[in-house]
Design a protein around this nucleic acid. Structure first.
Length: 553
RNA sequence: UGGGAUAUCGCCAAGCGGUAAGGCACCGGGUUUUGAUCUCGGCAUUCAGAGGUUCAAAUCCUCUUAUCCCAGCCA
């Protein structure tokens, strides 16, 4: 069987190629197995792109979405819905219906019985502390539980009664009988079932015993016919256990677990627990705060799904520990938006400009292209009158040659409009500039001055009579340090300027823009209207990412 | 001090015995009504270190070093 491989190559795909070539598998089946205990983040995106990407690229390959829901005390149906939406938004479709590990609880229970009947599992009554003591340490072997050799019938009876709810939480557990002296801690008679009188978001109150990850995951994979079970590096030690379980129960399918390194991103946290803490401590507005590295946060911020997919493609898949620079992600976002985002003008920190030689009552409609290189994106009408706004940063009373904006007594090009010259400035008592009086050259619309004068600078502007007021939210990294995960107290390294709010104006053509639609506000960056707070009465724009800026000053 | 893994440019990452891909970042030139974009050029005689095998080694063999993961009835 030949495979048409369009995705990026990596060691996992090499393994798959080989399995196809040798005939070990005819088709490939992967799965993305999130636990519904938090929102998906950029690290999950890597796994999603890997698993669903393989399903897309290999003939007849499929990828399941399976919720690994074996711990009802931490999980919630709200997360299920959010995760589903995030995967879909990222651009992927799972095979058939959504799966849940809890769908297999009955089968899992039967396999546990099989293990007990073979004397490969037993009910243990050690409490949590004792269990830990008996397990030994990294350098010293554990010792057998006193319950390890109890009769099979007794374990069978106890396990049945555990399910029936006869015993208290923590009083008993089912353990695999492997090797308490194993150098691999995971093989020291791991717990495979514990008692939890908890309501489960899928199975309700049907169960009071819940299977552990190591017992559940491999069997769920096998039941779904998964060929390659891809997970992160910290599960390498679990692989012998994964294989042990499948080797000792009556299932035919033996998926292969392959581990790859998780993604670390500079200045960001990718731990659900810690991200949850940011939300609970109100350090951010929610899981979808635009500063969050969650899929929903990035979406709200304006990152295109395609840019996130491209990023995942560029970072690759290996077993090496890595920390990717933020610049790499931002490059993908800019690259996508550069060609897809229509242009518009917005003034974030406005100061008024009066065109003294322009007829006061007049307003003309200038035509500006939506994109400088893509004519198919059309044009828009931009009103121009004697009163305009420009950004305070674009004017100086005096400046050196390198400053290419408006300077008193000098000329500058107004983007998509005329060349103007600053004549005088008006200030208030505090010395703050309130108005800049300029003259314009009527012969410079769409052409350079006929006398050959060179006007090097171009600045953006918004008509003062017809604009739309808008709020701009400028985002910076949430943390001051490259690796916030290594910091004990997150509060100490929180960037107090991670959100800066500005009140300004946008050109009138943006009055009825759509939420989450990307625009490039020329010379400022890429923005999109906030999906939660922007309304027609009060526009709110999130800065997705600034434009690249090579001006050193 | 037990076990498992990983070491190729500032950050990712190809490479799988035949003489170091690519991306991001960075540095320069050009174009430009966005200091954007685009474009041209530069950027590892060297692959954690030391030995060895070979005509030939990042790739094979030794040893050393560094880093990460494992002692939840979490996933």
């Amino acid at each position: 069987m030949t495979q048409v491989e369009t995705g990026p190559s990596n060691f996992i795909r090499n393994i798959i190629d080989n399995d196809l070539q040798t005939g070990k598998h005819q088709t490939i089946q992967t799965r993305f197995p999130p636990e519904p205990n938090g929102y998906l983040h950029i690290g999950h995106a890597k796994s999603i792109c890997l698993n669903f990407g393989i399903a897309e690229d290999y003939p007849n390959a499929l990828c399941n979405l399976r919720f690994d829901d074996t711990n009802p005390v931490k999980e919630d149906a709200n997360y299920v819905a959010a995760i589903e939406a995030d995967v879909r938004w990222l651009g992927f479709q799972w095979a058939g219906d959504i799966h849940y590990s809890s769908d297999y609880f009955e089968q899992l229970y039967a396999y546990a019985i099989e293990l007990i009947e073979q004397d490969k599992a037993y009910v243990c009554e050690l409490n949590a502390e004792q269990t830990r003591e008996y397990r030994g340490t990294l350098t010293s072997p554990g010792k057998d539980s006193p319950f390890r050799n109890r009769p099979i019938q007794e374990s069978l009876d106890l396990f049945t009664r555990m399910r029936a709810g006869e015993f208290a939480e923590g009083s008993m557990m089912l353990r695999a009988k492997i090797d308490m002296a194993s150098a691999n801690m995971k093989m020291r008679d791991p717990v495979i079932y514990r008692i939890r009188f908890a309501h489960h978001h899928q199975t309700g109150d049907k169960w009071c015993i819940y299977p552990m990850y190591d017992f559940t995951h491999c069997i769920s994979d096998a039941l779904e016919g998964i060929t390659h079970s891809l997970c992160t590096l910290e599960f390498e030690d679990h692989r012998p256990l994964y294989d042990w379980v499948l080797a000792n129960i009556s299932v035919a399918c033996k998926p292969r677990q392959i581990e790859f390194s998780r993604l670390n991103l500079q200045y960001t946290l990718t731990s659900k627990r810690k991200l949850n803490a940011l939300v609970n401590d109100n350090l951010v507005s929610g899981w979808n705060d635009p500063r969050m590295p969650t899929i929903s946060g990035m979406r709200r911020r304006g990152y295109p799904a395609a840019a996130i997919r491209e990023f995942c493609k560029r970072i690759g898949v290996t077993k090496q520990e890595n920390t990717v620079e933020l610049a790499s992600l931002e490059a993908c976002v800019r690259e996508n938006l550069e060609s897809n985002a229509p242009r518009a003008m917005a003034v974030i920190d406005p100061v008024k400009v009066i065109i003294t030689n322009y007829e006061n009552a007049k307003t003309e409609q200038l035509i500006a292209p939506a994109h400088p290189k893509d004519e198919s994106m059309g044009t828009r009408s931009v009103p121009f009158s004697a009163e305009l706004f420009i950004d305070r940063a674009d004017f100086r009373e005096e400046a050196n040659k390198k400053y290419k904006r408006l300077v008193l007594g000098k000329e500058v090009r107004l983007r998509n409009a005329y060349v103007i010259k600053a004549e005088t400035v008006i200030k208030d008592e505090a010395g703050t500039i309130t108005e800049i009086h300029c003259s314009y050259d009527p012969e410079t619309l769409g052409k350079n001055p006929s006398d050959g004068r060179k006007v090097k600078g171009v600045i953006h502007w918004v008509d003062a009579k017809t604009n739309k007021p808008a709020e701009f939210r400028i985002y910076e990294r949430l943390f001051l340090v490259e690796n916030p995960a290594a910091v004990e107290n997150i509060h100490e390294v929180l960037n107090s300027d991670s959100l800066i709010v500005k009140q300004g104006v946008v050109e009138i053509s943006l009055a009825d823009n759509q939420v989450e639609k990307a625009y490039q506000f020329e010379r400022e960056g890429y923005f999109c209207a906030d999906s939660k707070d922007s309304t027609a009465q009060h526009l709110v724009f999130n800065r997705t990412v600034a434009l690249r800026d090579s001006w050193g000053e």
